[in-house]
């Protein structure tokens, strides 16, 4: 019984120094930044003062135009995730379910997956035009590979017993997919979607920096060409925060509910 008290107090003891260290590290970095900025050791425009960055951040967040651009990018990424995710899921299921298909085509996906996707952008412009279509296409070819590969891998690690249960109930193919395969593969699929989301964001936004007049990528490259560094820092901070937040949220979905055992 005496143990209980120690166990409940322990996390607080551990958490405190960690929090302190975190706050200290952030404060140290900010202080260093401000010192460098004020000292003029580096060009002031490259390291703008914290006040300038905070001001730019505030201006962005009250600017309705910014949310228009953010909405454009978000929509492009969402459409890309739906198209790339669904096709990745279908291809992954097919490759995972059939040994021959898997062995025949998975190596291609495996080796094409880590190639730089942005180089396909000129082709995507020719196929889908200079508008949002080509950005969505960039997102699609980026996120297709990780989702297809992790679905196929996830499919192979399903407990054989579950599949046999489905078969002995004479489940139809779509029933097998919706009742057995997908629930049993939640973790690898969520992981694939997480990876896919990350690369879809990169693909779409990089395409926007190359050729577009809308979206967050366009804003970033626009701040570069007008040399508005505080604004660029503010934009990068917002994009990173959103990407990290969504990633954490999707990850929580994957690890969320405990497995139902009954």
């Amino acid at each position: 019984m005496a143990e209980t008290g120690r166990l409940t107090r322990a996390p607080a003891l551990v958490a405190n120094p960690v929090m302190l260290l975190r706050v200290g590290l952030i404060a140290a970095v900010l202080a260093l930044w401000q010192t460098v900025s004020v000292s003029g050791l580096l060009f002031r425009d490259v390291v703008p003062s914290l006040g300038a960055i905070a001001g730019a951040l505030a201006r962005l967040l009250v600017d309705p135009g910014f949310f228009g651009h953010l909405g454009t990018s978000a929509l492009e990424i969402a459409v890309a995730l739906v198209i790339g995710g669904l096709s990745g899921l279908i291809v992954g299921l097919a490759l995972g379910a059939n040994r021959l298909l898997g062995k025949a085509f998975e190596p291609y996906l495996y080796y094409l997956g880590p190639t730089p996707k942005i180089i396909f952008f000129p082709i995507m412009i020719m196929w889908f035009g200079v508008g949002p279509g080509s950005k969505v296409a960039m997102g699609v070819i980026s996120c297709f590979f990780p989702i297809a590969l992790s679905t196929a891998a996830g499919m192979r690690q399903i407990d054989r017993v579950l599949i046999r249960v489905g078969r002995s109930f004479r489940a139809a193919t779509w029933q097998m997919v919706s009742k057995i395969y997908l629930p049993a593969m939640r973790e690898p699929i969520v992981n694939g979607v997480r990876l896919g989301f990350g690369v879809a964001v990169i693909g779409t936004l990089l395409a926007e920096t190359k050729l577009s007049n809308r979206g967050v990528g366009f804003l970033v490259i626009n701040s570069y060409s007008t040399f508005d560094m505080p604004r660029m820092y503010a934009l990068l901070i917002i994009v990173f925060m959103i990407a990290i937040g969504v990633n954490a949220l999707v990850g929580r979905l994957g690890a969320g509910r405990p497995h139902i055992k009954s």
Partner: peptide, 18 residues
């Protein structure tokens, strides 16, 4: 781990300046 999920390459205009 959080940084690993951020689109760090989007910083390239910043690196161009630096």
């Amino acid at each position: 781990a959080a940084l690993a999920s951020a689109p760090l390459v989007l910083m390239y205009p910043l690196f161009l300046v630096i």
